[in-house]
Design a protein around this nucleic acid. Structure first.
Length: 144
DNA sequence: CTTCTGACA
DNA sequence: TGTCAGAA
C-alpha cells in the first residue's frame, strides 16, 4: 500500500470538523453515538477525524438539510457501508485470485477504504435532491 | 483555551 | 438540540 492512498488519515480535531461541516459539536458527537461514524481517538481520548469522516458528515448534513429524516440517513449510510464492504471484499477476492494464478502484480489496489461506489451513489442522491428541490418548491414532505 | 461525558430544560 | 458542569 502507498502512503497517500486516498482520503483517510485521522488528523482533524472536532473543532476543525465543526468549521468544515457547519455542524455543531453536539450534533457531530450525537451522530457518532448513533453509529453513523466512528472517528479515531488520541491517547488523551480526543476525537480524530479523517477527511472521509468530514465528507461523511457533510453528506449527512446535506441530506438532513433537504428534509431527509435522521432515520433515513442512517439507513442510507448503512446501505453504503454494506456496498463498500462488498466492494472491498470482492477486491480482496480478486487480488487473491490473481495471486493464485501467478499474476499478482496486476493490481495496485490501495482502494480499500473509500471505494467509489458510495461516492457515485452520493452523487446520484445529491442530484435527485437538487432536482426535487427545484421542482416541488412548496413541499414539506410527500416525496420519498 | 479546547475537548470529553453526562445530564437537564 | 442547546447548554451547563466538572474534569482532563
Amino acid at each position: 500500500m502507498k502512503s497517500g492512498s486516498h482520503s483517510d488519515q485521522p488528523s482533524f480535531s472536532i473543532g476543525v470538523v465543526k468549521e468544515a461541516t457547519g455542524l455543531t459539536e453536539r450534533r457531530i458527537r450525537y451522530y457518532e453515538t448513533l453509529g453513523m461514524l466512528a472517528p479515531g481517538r488520541t491517547q488523551g481520548n480526543q476525537r480524530l477525524y479523517s477527511q472521509g469522516d468530514i465528507d461523511r458528515l457533510k453528506y449527512i448534513k446535506a441530506l438532513l438539510d433537504h428534509g431527509v429524516t435522521l432515520k433515513e440517513v442512517r439507513a442510507q449510510l448503512q446501505q453504503e457501508d454494506t456496498a463498500t464492504y462488498r466492494h472491498d471484499f470482492d477486491e480482496v477476492e480478486r487480488d487473491a485470485e490473481s495471486y493464485f494464478q501467478g499474476k499478482l502484480i496486476a493490481r495496485r489496489a490501495d482502494v480499500h477504504r473509500d471505494s467509489l461506489y458510495p461516492l457515485i451513489n452520493r452523487q446520484d442522491i445529491m442530484r435527485r435532491l437538487a432536482r426535487e428541490h427545484k421542482d416541488g418548491q412548496g413541499d414539506t414532505k410527500g416525496d420519498h
